[in-house]
């Protein structure tokens, strides 16, 4: 029934359409991109400028200060974000859910330690934490993933823990204990599925935040090493000439914004469909 409500929510469907759009773009990048994203051609071309020595080929979104085609870089850049944002979010969820289940279900010292740890992490300004981690371990795909997990998991743990504290008191959990189920079974089968609604809603929002974070890390020069096209990195590279050539900055920004908006709209739709546990 909730899926029906979702289908009829134009915002959620719009969000889903945006996400699907970027998935298709990323999947078909080699077919869609007119040029090699790293090929250096004519620098500082405005959007729509004709490619030299050609009657019809154009740089639809212009070229950057090094002469690379912005459209091709935006298209290829979608692959980066679509790989890293959901993957990092999933990993953070795996860790956060495991910690939250254990802390909420067993209470006691595990809970105290996990909660203390998460409070310490959550009390750091997020960006500084990212900069510290990436600066210490160096910018690479895997380090970005680990940094996102380290920063996001505590927040997820707190959500899960709160849900578990409520769910563990339900009678069906007592019934499971009365037939001798072990803690792992109870956590995975009896508790987790009933906590999944709010977690899916939060997950969608979080993919958006992680995408922004990856964009910001790229902008700060802590993203994926060049020359991989990465939307945040594109903005950073062209920042110095952005006043004269705004197209180099605007298009990657629109890409990030539409990607994040897609997930936010979907999350909002899921929430309206009652998936977050509200009525």
């Amino acid at each position: 029934m909730s899926s029906n409500i979702l289908m009829r929510n134009p915002y959620a469907m719009g969000g889903l359409a945006l996400i699907l759009f970027w998935v298709l773009v990323a999947a078909a990048a080699p077919l869609l991109a007119p040029f090699d994203p790293n090929a250096v051609m004519t620098p500082f071309q405005k959007p729509g400028a004709l490619v030299q020595g050609s009657e019809s080929a154009r740089y639809w979104l212009g070229t950057d200060q090094l002469g690379r085609d912005v459209l091709s870089r935006v298209i290829w850049g979608s692959r980066t974000i679509l790989l890293y944002a959901p993957l990092a979010t999933l990993l953070a969820y795996a860790v956060g859910i495991a910690m939250g289940l254990v802390a909420g279900f067993h209470r006691g010292w595990t809970d105290t330690i996990f909660s203390l740890f998460s409070n310490i992490v959550l009390s750091f300004p997020v960006m500084i934490l990212y900069v510290l981690i990436i600066a210490k371990f160096g910018p690479s795909g895997i380090n970005i993933l680990l940094a996102v997990v380290f920063v996001s998991a505590p927040g997820i743990m707190r959500i899960v823990r709160g849900l578990v504290l409520d769910l563990r008191e339900q009678d069906y959990v007592s019934a499971a204990r009365l037939r001798g189920e072990n803690a792992l079974y109870i956590m995975i089968v009896e508790i987790l599925p009933n906590a999944s609604g709010p977690l899916i809603v939060d997950g969608c929002l979080r993919v958006g935040y992680v995408a922004i974070t990856i964009g910001m890390l790229g902008f700060l020069g802590l993203g994926l090493p060049p020359p991989n096209p990465d939307w945040g990195g594109m903005v950073a590279d062209s920042r110095a000439v952005a006043v004269a050539f705004p197209h180099m900055v605007i298009f990657p920004c629109i890409a990030i914004a539409s990607f994040v908006l897609g997930f936010n709209l979907l999350a909002d739709g899921l929430r309206r469909a009652g998936l977050d546990g509200g009525s």
Binding site: D171, Y172, A175, P193
Partner: peptide, 22 residues
């Protein structure tokens, strides 16, 4: 398991006596 089998319980609230997702 033997002593678990011997005695079982029925709860008060029909709303949360069964796992809603199974």
């Amino acid at each position: 398991p033997k002593s678990l089998r011997r005695i079982q319980m029925v709860f008060q609230n029909p709303g949360d006596t069964l796992n809603p997702s199974r």
